[in-house]
């Protein structure tokens, strides 16, 4: 959620901590045995940090490292791993370029790299569309709702509701609505429009757009709520000063409010991009990424091939590619777009 703090912002709390924990006067319990104190201090640190560190290293770091190791092997996950065949970067090569089957000399392209690139293109399409569609919607709604009117609190709560709903429940709800004989088709008929012939989700081109609509429904509330929280921190004095100078509502939004919630927008965009790369639950509930993978994502492709088709080495390679992708994008985003916010972290508050 806040990967940016991983490197960019970690200096901020660190300074605070430094000031309080290692201030001018050392703050320690008063005793006369400095040596015993040091041992005692380290014992306390181990006691406090130990459980969390052990859990984290065992169940987060170790599996991630294992994924990197598995990705170099041909392994079905059932037999002993020691029997697995080491194949170097073959799994990666298959995903990225196809490769050839050693037995039949047939190209792997249709089996491996085509669905991989198809899935990856969906992730990037979702990233792009989130910026092009969800961002303007969320900004417009947040800016208009950033004022007093009857029912404001209720509206905020309701608009936020889809975000806290589980992906599974939202997914099944939309599956029923977008059933070929469901209410969405009925609705289109009643206003005299055609609905996709092959079904909302099954249609090769409509499927992706239907899923994007569902994703927008599910996640746009987060953007609205974050933007509203950012807007509530914008000083009214500025807006009033602008109003006195004759600025219109639009000018105030465009020149004052939107620039001042810039940090919030940029962080939302960051979360959205990372979330789009790792998108899984929703597409999986919606028929495992589509009957022909028409809205698969790399995460759903990884599960399909790694777990349910028991190609663990290849699935792990996909997982590593996904990790590298989000890592590189995160670093690039922090180094370029978020850098100026981090230079003045207090402004974001």
């Amino acid at each position: 959620m806040t990967a940016l703090e991983a490197s960019g912002r970690s200096t901020v709390p660190a300074v605070d901590a430094q000031a309080s924990a290692a201030g001018p006067r050392p703050v320690t319990p008063a005793t006369d045995h400095p040596r015993r104190d040091t041992v005692r201090k380290w014992a306390e640190i181990a006691l406090f940090v130990g459980p969390a560190l052990v859990l984290f290293l065992t169940f987060v770091v170790y599996p991630v490292v294992s994924a990197a190791r598995f990705s170099l092997y041909k392994w079905n996950g059932v037999s002993q791993f020691s029997d697995a065949e080491f194949i170097g970067f073959e799994n990666y090569a298959r995903a990225l370029f196809g490769g050839t089957d050693p037995a039949t000399q047939e190209a792997f392209v249709t089996a491996y790299s085509e669905p991989f690139w198809q899935a990856l293109s969906h992730n990037f399409a979702i990233i792009f569309l989130s910026m092009a569609v969800q961002l303007p919607i969320a900004l417009l709604v947040a800016l208009t709702l950033n004022r007093k009117f009857r029912g404001r609190a209720f509206t905020r709560v309701v608009i936020f509701a889809p975000y806290v709903l589980s992906e599974v429940i939202a997914g099944i709800m939309w599956l029923i609505i977008f059933d070929p004989n469901g209410i969405a088709t009925e609705f289109m008929q009643s206003i005299g429009l055609d609905s996709p012939a092959g079904g909302w989700l099954e249609d090769p081109t409509w499927g992706f757009w239907t899923v994007f609509f569902i994703i927008t429904w599910k996640y746009v509330g987060l953007a609205i709520i974050l933007f509203l929280a950012g807007l509530s921190g914008v000083s009214e004095d500025l807006q009033e000063a602008a109003a006195i100078d004759g600025a219109s509502w639009w000018q105030i939004q465009w020149r004052i409010n939107i620039p001042l919630i810039g940090p919030t927008i940029r962080i939302w965009a960051f979360l959205s991009i990372i979330g789009s790369i790792q998108l899984f639950d929703m597409v999986w509930v919606l028929n495992r990424g589509g009957t022909a993978g028409q809205y698969s994502t790399i995460a759903s492709y990884m599960m399909e091939i790694g777990f349910f088709r028991a190609d663990w080495g290849y699935g792990s390679a996909i997982a590593v590619i996904m990790f590298i992708l989000s890592f590189v994008i995160a670093l690039a985003y922090m180094a370029t777009i978020l850098r100026r916010d981090n230079a003045h972290p207090r402004k974001a508050r």
Binding site: M1, T2, A3, E5, A6, S7, S10, A14, V49, A52, L53, F56, L57, V60, V61, Y62, P63, V64, S66, A67, F70, G77, Q278, F280, A299, M302, M303, G306, F307, W312, G315, S316, A319, V320, M322, F323, S326, F327, A330
Partner: peptide
Amino acid sequence: IFVIFTTGLMFPLTVAVLP
């Protein structure tokens, strides 16, 4: 130690789930 924990944000469950 703090940096170790923060790297966890880079490791989503999806990447680690098979192992």
